[in-house]
Amino acid sequence: MTLSEVVGEIIRLGDASRAYWDRELPKDHPHYPLILDGEKQTPPPPEDAQILSILESLPEAQIYAVALLMYLGRGDFAADRIPSAIPRVKKMLPTKDLAIDQIMSQTALAEYLADAVAEARRRRIDLDDLASCDAVAVN
């Protein structure tokens, strides 16, 4: 899969996951959005496992590109700083597993990636070129 296909699928699954949590958490937690100790644990949506499976199947360069886009969409840096941000992402997340854990921990992952895709389009940044960039590749 190309990076743009991967990101599109993660956005689709992430939106479904977020809808699940918005629907199910209030059922198990009467004081939602507060979740109190001892309340029933809500099982995760199947989409979370699908996102994890996709990430685990990706080459490292694509995983770091997804993390980079997540940080871009979160507002951690501007799109014009992508080249300098690539090594920073790799330094912050030195292993594939750590990068995947960081991506999976974002409850607003789909929104972050959608915002990053929109910004990339505005700036005419080709996501598929980003994934093949030597600077993203793990050394």
Rank of each mutant, 00 (worst) to 15 (best):
W21S: 11
D22Q: 15
R23V: 01
L25D: 14
K27I: 15
K27C: 10
K27H: 09
D28N: 14
H29A: 14
P30S: 07
H31T: 14
P33L: 08
L36H: 14
D37S: 12
D37H: 03
D37G: 11
D37L: 09
G38E: 08
G38L: 03
G38T: 05
G38A: 06
K40N: 12
K40A: 15
T42W: 09
P43Y: 03
P43T: 07
P43E: 14
P44C: 01
P44S: 13
P46F: 05
P46E: 15
E47T: 10
D48H: 11
D48T: 09
A49V: 07
Q50H: 06
S53T: 12
I54H: 13
L55D: 09
E56N: 15
E56D: 15
E56R: 15
L58M: 09
E60S: 14
A61M: 01
A61P: 01
I63A: 10
A65S: 15
A67V: 00
L68Q: 04
L69R: 03
M70P: 00
G73C: 05
R74Q: 11
D76N: 11
F77C: 08
F77I: 00
A78L: 09
A79Y: 02
A79T: 01
A79C: 02
D80G: 02
D80P: 00
D80F: 08
I82S: 06
I82N: 04
P83C: 04
P83H: 05
I86P: 01
V89K: 03
V89Q: 03
K91I: 02
M92A: 12
T95P: 09
T95A: 09
T95N: 05
K96F: 06
K96V: 04
K96Y: 04
D97C: 00
D97I: 00
L98S: 07
I100G: 05
I100S: 05
Q102K: 07
Q102H: 10
S105G: 11
Q106I: 00
T107K: 08
T107P: 04
T107F: 13
A108G: 01
E111K: 07
D115L: 03
D115S: 10
A116W: 03
V117Q: 13
V117F: 06
V117N: 04
R123Y: 01
I125H: 06
I125R: 12
D126H: 08
D128I: 00
L130R: 02
L130M: 09
L130G: 06
A131P: 02
A131Y: 02
A131W: 02
S132E: 14
S132V: 00
A135E: 10
A135R: 07
